[in-house]
Amino acid sequence: MDVADKLLRDARRGLLAVAVLEVLLDEGPLHGYGLRKSLTIRMGWEPPEASLYDALKRLEKLGLVKGRWVRAGRGPLRRVYVATEEGRRVHGKVVRLLSSIIGWLICREVGEG
């Protein structure tokens, strides 16, 4: 893996975490399955389960998302995720920063084109 791939992988990982926050803030508490489906529809690509797990784990560790197990009928326990207030605050900050960076990159590309 070259340096560009590593940078892209890191960026994708970070962006997936932001996307998870975005979906949870927008749609409220969601099951893991619902979260994955919503991300797939919004982003246009299906995030691998392991990547989504890592993103959720990181967000939970940072206190931006809270996950809890719920029992439904006699089946296995299900996990429900919800964004925290801290998650809302951090999400706003990150989105503003990302928007300015992406906006600047697009302007530059258009200018060069």
Partner: peptide, 8 residues
């Protein structure tokens, strides 16, 4: 859990 829809 990410793979299975909720049962309702």
């Amino acid at each position: 859990d990410l793979r299975h829809p909720p049962t309702g």
